[in-house]
Amino acid sequence: MAVIPVELAGREYEVRVGHGLLQSIATEAEPFLRKRHVCIVADINARANWGDAVSRSLELAGIEPRWFDVAPGEASKSWDSLACLTDWLLAQNVERGDHVFALGGGVVGDLTGFACAILKRGCGFVQLPTTLLSQVDSSVGGKTAINTPAGKNLVGAFHQPSLVLADLNTLSTLPQREMRAGYAEVLKYGVLGDRGFVDWLEEHGDAVLGMEQAPLEEAVARSVSAKARIVAEDERETSGARALLNLGHTFGHALEAETGFSDKLLHGEAVALGMVLAARYSARCGLMRGEDAERVTHAVDAAGLPAEISALELACSGGDLADHMQHDKKMDAGILPFILLRGIGSAFLDREVRLEDVAAFLDEQLQAH
């Protein structure tokens, strides 16, 4: 098992990465089980696969699990879901010193974390991420949010978990498409700040996607370590360091919005294609070599992820996609910062990108290939 500390000002928590952590959850999370019962918010699929193991461990320790089920998908990150969850938690008499557990992917983690951020002005929570995407990204760092008609993750709070248990066994139940979508975020850490990790993934990526234990644990641990370093430097995204984690997201969120935040394009797939577009746009602007941009494209394509925007068959223009970007939560004084690349492993924040130029670039990409 790998243990990665997330060191923040005045506090610290651990991310534990390994196999079989849920089967021993009563031991792993013992400091956060102060009552004879615990509230667990769970994706219904994650509960079907792992609920019995969690319940068994807790019940053997004399702790009653109380479950709140959440339907899969981004639609559950809504005002209605938030209201239902907070009402249920209040009915369970959750106190500020208690910890609520979140079992599932990023949707459950975001929803639960936000509910815990506002419940009685803040109670604790423990992340039990069951998808690769949530293990390497959303469960670490304290960003919690819900979606609104205006856009994704526009209402939320920074609220750090007290513990993250990333049980790699849970990934065995993922459809291959979900596994690949999570791999996009793994690749992102290399592209934005660690060229050596990209080299490693080019050699071991198939083993990671094939669920080989040692490469999988190393990939997740290295990804979490990369995010932990950035979060420790810039917890609330004020210095610009944490913004680098948004590589691929500005383009990706626009594509998600155009596809209705539906299964036509999963979040990780959107990020993968967004990284390709960020690399190509960087090369178009003369910021990075074209060969490096094509290397990013090849790495995305080799992982079975979408590498060409034209493959989505969108009935829109580059201007339509740029319009979606106007609602991005990173918009500041009318300027939308973009994460661009000077090379593989060298991302930076550019505040001088003109959306009209981005729209023209996207028109080129929509018509290419």
Rank of each mutant, 00 (worst) to 15 (best):
A9N: 13
R11T: 12
E12Y: 00
Y13C: 07
V15E: 09
R16W: 07
V17W: 02
A26W: 07
E28C: 12
L33D: 01
L33K: 04
V38L: 08
D52M: 05
D52R: 11
A53F: 03
V54K: 01
R56P: 00
S57R: 06
A75I: 08
K77F: 03
K77S: 04
L82K: 03
W88K: 01
L90E: 12
L90F: 06
A91C: 13
N93Q: 14
V100S: 04
A102M: 15
A102E: 02
A102F: 15
G105D: 03
D110M: 01
D110Y: 02
C116D: 10
A117E: 12
K120N: 09
C123P: 08
Q127V: 13
L128H: 04
T130S: 15
L132F: 07
D137G: 11
D137T: 05
V140T: 09
G142I: 05
K143M: 11
A150N: 03
A150P: 00
A157S: 15
A157K: 00
A157D: 12
S162W: 10
L165Q: 04
L165R: 02
D167F: 15
T173F: 01
E185L: 04
G196V: 05
G196I: 00
W200N: 08
G205R: 10
D206F: 00
D206W: 00
G210F: 08
E217I: 00
R222T: 12
R229H: 10
I230V: 15
V231Q: 09
A232R: 11
S239Y: 00
L244W: 10
L245C: 08
L247F: 02
G248Q: 01
T250S: 06
F251L: 01
F251A: 02
G252K: 06
L255C: 05
E258L: 08
E258P: 07
T259P: 01
G260T: 05
S262A: 03
L265Q: 02
L277W: 04
A279C: 09
Y281W: 14
S282A: 11
A283Q: 11
C285T: 00
R289V: 10
D292P: 00
D292K: 01
A293D: 05
H298I: 00
L305T: 02
D320Y: 01
M325V: 07
M325A: 04
H327T: 13
K329L: 08
D332T: 15
G334Y: 02
I335R: 15
R342C: 08
R342Y: 07
G343E: 11
F348P: 09
R351N: 15
V353D: 13
A360F: 11
A360I: 10
L366D: 12
H369I: 14
H369T: 10
H369D: 13
